[in-house]
Amino acid sequence: MRPGVLIFWLLAVPMVACALLVITSRNPLRSALFLVAHMLLLAGMFLSLSAQYVAAVQVVVYAGAIMVLFVFVIMLLNLGGAQKMDAAGLGWALGIAMSLGLAALFVGTGVWKSGLHAGKATAKTLAQGGTAQAVGFALFDPELPWLFPFEVASIVLLMAAVGAIVLAKRKL
């Protein structure tokens, strides 16, 4: 087995297991910890896809900032594990059926044998396409369409920060 294939399976199997544990754990805090593990494994997957910069952002922003926010709110609300928080009976069956139906749709469209036409990937894009330098140059290149979405993202983040304060603060 080639090392790349081995790494893929070593990352993919725990990743799916962690995702399943997130949705089967009764305790939300345990779900959050499994989600952290899931995101760190995904960062490893990004590394194996030679997207180093995105992997670093994934660890810092997702596994760091966003998950701290989750754990903070779980602690703040302090609900305890006693509350039953799963849909019962029909709702549960419908949810699983929905998920399996979606899976059947994906399999039916043949996502893994779609016959993607060969791209322009070369050894050079693989070696250098994921560094912070390459991503930054593409992001601010006036020839490419990414500059405007980047600026809009900053406005979205500002609006989210203001909105979160307005929603959660008792008295402004």
Partner: peptide
């Protein structure tokens, strides 16, 4: 699909 299953079955 795992995410969809979680969204549909969880109430928390």
């Amino acid at each position: 699909c795992i995410g969809v299953a979680g969204v549909a079955t969880k109430r928390n």
